[in-house]
Amino acid sequence: MSTLYRLVYLSKNRISGGAAHVAAEVQSILAAAQRNNPPLELTGALIFNAGMFAQVLEGPCSAIESTFEKIQQDPRHGDLEVLAYYQTTERAFHHWSMGYFGQSRQGQDLFGHLAKVTGFNTDGLEGTRLFEIIRDIALEEETRAA
């Protein structure tokens, strides 16, 4: 078994257009991740609001690095900022090739509040804290769906 790593990053949304177009682009990102991640042994979660993406990727180092290189080249993402990249002993998102969370009112409020408080300036925002926010939203939404 390969060593497990976790990457936590933020990026600014560069998708322009109306709400329907933005939603279609986010669904395209999710579909590609859900298709491409399982063979790479990647799991994770994505949260999106109109202004920013926050994502956690978990898996082998080489798979995370190659996937993140593609994300950096994706014109839908801007000003990418890695907040944390570290070795870990277990997956937090083992059920999801790429979960999409924050669609609930509570999730939108929590993540939208983060964007509003930071003004999209992520100086001082710690990767561990962002990971905890995403994990907590995921657990809340998973519990609600059960």
Rank of each mutant, 00 (worst) to 15 (best):
T128F: 10
E69N: 12
L139C: 14
S97G: 10
A145Q: 12
L42A: 08
L46D: 02
V22F: 04
G17L: 05
S11D: 07
F53L: 08
N37V: 11
N121T: 05
G44K: 03
T88D: 09
R129N: 13
A54W: 02
E126H: 14
L80D: 04
T67E: 06
A33T: 07
E65G: 00
K70G: 15
L110P: 01
Q27I: 11
I15N: 03
M52D: 02
Q72I: 08
A92G: 14
S16V: 15
I134H: 06
E65M: 10
D109E: 13
F131C: 06
A146G: 11
H21W: 00
R144N: 11
E142T: 15
H95L: 12
E140K: 07
F101P: 05
G59Q: 09
T3P: 03
Q34R: 15
I137E: 00
H113K: 12
G124L: 02
Q55C: 04
E141D: 07
T89F: 07
Q108C: 03
R129V: 15
R35F: 10
L10C: 10
E132K: 06
E69R: 14
F101K: 07
Q55M: 04
E142G: 14
Q106G: 01
W96H: 12
D136R: 12
Q87M: 05
K116M: 09
G51K: 08
I47L: 13
A20D: 12
N49G: 07
L10F: 10
P38L: 05
L57H: 07
S28K: 09
L110F: 07
R129S: 15
T88A: 12
S97C: 01
G112V: 02
A92K: 07
G51N: 08
G18A: 05
A24Y: 00
V117H: 08
I133L: 15
T43M: 01
F68H: 06
Q108I: 04
Y100P: 04
V82I: 15
K12G: 10
Q72K: 15
A23T: 13
A19G: 08
Q106L: 11
R144D: 12
T128K: 12
Q34P: 04
A23M: 00
P75D: 13
N13L: 05
L125N: 06
G99R: 02
A138W: 03
A20G: 00
Q87F: 00
I134L: 15
L83N: 11
Y86C: 13
L114C: 14
S104K: 01
R105T: 11
E132H: 10
G51P: 02
V82Y: 02
R135D: 14
N121K: 02
T89R: 12
N37A: 07
Y5W: 13
G102L: 01
Y86F: 09
N37L: 09
L4Y: 09
G51E: 07
V22I: 15
L46K: 02
R76G: 04
I71A: 02
L114K: 09
D79V: 01
L83R: 08
L40Q: 14
N121G: 06
T67D: 00
H95V: 12
